[in-house]
Nucleic acid binder design. Structure first.
Lengths: 140, 140
DNA sequence: CCCTTCGTTAGACAAAGTCCAGGGTGCGTC
DNA sequence: GACGCACCCTGGACTTTGTCTAACGAAGGG
């Protein structure tokens, strides 16, 4: 991810690179995700996309987010029951999750090492490692 | 957890130890959780409890599971959107999660060390660390 | 015996997400 | 230009998971 400027044109290119037909709605959704650079829920994406006039349906938002997921454009971060966030940062990294405020913060995984893991069960391959550190305000 | 035999009497004692009034339904739910010794969803608990005759309501299952959670009798494991499992093993440990079959396997955390973590953000304390290793069958 | 507290229940409700049938739109072919 | 086809979007119905509420019953204390 080298593009610091997330114009709609760049978004279209990005989608094409990943074999996604860059339709108007998909570009808008990608734009919302990447220009915020933050962890958004499907609902937030839906609202943000529809803040500008042209209504995008809920079904399309879900379809598109799943498509992006499949194509490796975004990552899913699951922190709480019924709380899924979509993370435009696809570089492996982990998260702090404030259980009170619901705020999610990235942890760069470059320096992190997990040692002592047992071997994988037979016949499976790793798909990903999620580390979530649940925190809460000290005084609460 | 020393009791290897999860009789209903032991369950009642266990509940009392944690300050939970051991009602019939709560004992049944605890029995299901601990005798299976496995990760169960709320729905599975509901079904298993009602396999025997006396019907227990959905509300009670949810109430009870949340109560157990609060009292530290069980742990919540969140692996997928809308998939919450209740784990009777409250010793800190981590999980393999087979994204295809949905099977959850414990990883003893005794040998595991995570190094290189950045310091916690200001004014927060750790509530827990979840490590989930997502795996999938090799041949898929 | 009344009153209060606690636990349970059924059903209504809410949130998140999926499914489906219908209707564009664009494109290649004739 | 007309047709057929593939793809995409849409609204609405539906499903799943979980919570809320009002009513009821049992236990205990005065």
């Amino acid at each position: 991810m080298k593009t610091t400027c997330h114009t709609r044109e760049n978004m279209a290119d990005l989608l094409r690179q990943r074999g996604v037909n860059p339709t108007h709605q998909r570009i808008e959704i990608a734009h919302v995700l990447f220009s915020h650079g933050q962890h958004l829920s499907a609902d937030q994406v839906l609202n943000l996309v529809n803040q500008r006039s042209p209504e995008t349906s809920r079904a399309t938002v879900y379809n598109t987010l799943n498509l992006f997921l499949e194509k490796g454009l975004v990552r899913e971060v699951i922190v709480d029951a019924g709380k899924v966030f979509y993370d435009p940062n696809t570089i492996p990294h982990h998260h702090f999750y404030d259980v009170v405020s619901g705020k999610l913060t990235d942890i760069d995984s470059a320096d992190i090492a997990i040692t002592g893991l047992p071997p994988l069960p037979d016949g499976v391959v790793t798909e990903g490692v999620d580390v979530i550190i649940r925190v809460r305000p000290q005084t609460a």
